[in-house]
Amino acid sequence: MRRALRGYRAYVRAAVAIRLQYRITIFASAAVTLLWILLVTRVWSAAYQGRDTVAGLSRESTVVYLTLASLQAIVINSPLMWIMAARVRSGEVVFDISRPLGYPGQMLALQAGTSVTQIAVTLLVVPLAGLIGGLSGPAGLAAGLLYPVALLLGWMLNGLLSLLIGLTAFWTVENTGIAVLYRFVAAFLAGASVPLVFFPAPLRAVADALPFRYIVYQPAAIYIGQVNGPAARDGFVVAAGWIVLLSGLTALVWRQAYRRTVVHGG
């Protein structure tokens, strides 16, 4: 157990080092996010135009929500799926599989390392994001305390979903299509550009039924006080349920992928 942990830590460190080699890429995506914050907050402000509160959200809270949500959505754009596909294509995946650490665990460690750098850069640009969009303190002590917990659950969900999408590479080899599809559909249904309360009822029902909302909407809504008390608690329970479900599914899919690679020789 201790040895395995040390192995995973090495993996996370390696992922951080790899990401740091592409510093310019990280800063470019930060710049892109800032630009998006600029646009999305201006569009929303223009829409509010004089009105104070719409659908229970004030203009100020909406701007804070959008700024936070845009920053949180960075995590959805992870190179994990591309890395997995590239290693399947080149055959290097065989080395990954033959390592003593489990393959899904290795990939999650890789994702963690990527996130560490993403979070570091995100923290660096938070002041700028606040300036361009708008930020304020959390809605209350409880909101402030629950926010990181919600973020962590969202991160785990996104990691599992990325891993699942990445595993499709074992069948299709080329997975750019599905990876990009995931990135945009998930970001939209997670509420990255529109707080879910504004969704028309049928779309809202779809977004509520899917796990994506826990990656962006739930934490940001907790932060601005839109979701609190029992609603927040229920959210945590459902998110945890999704994590259990997706872990099981990942294990299942991985077993099939493994069989496909090892037994049938890729």
Binding site: V40, A47, V54, S193, V194, F198, P200
Partner: peptide, 10 residues
């Protein structure tokens, strides 16, 4: 979709 949802409300 973002604009559409926005205009749906506003």
């Amino acid at each position: 979709a973002f604009v559409w949802v926005l205009l749906h409300t506003f």
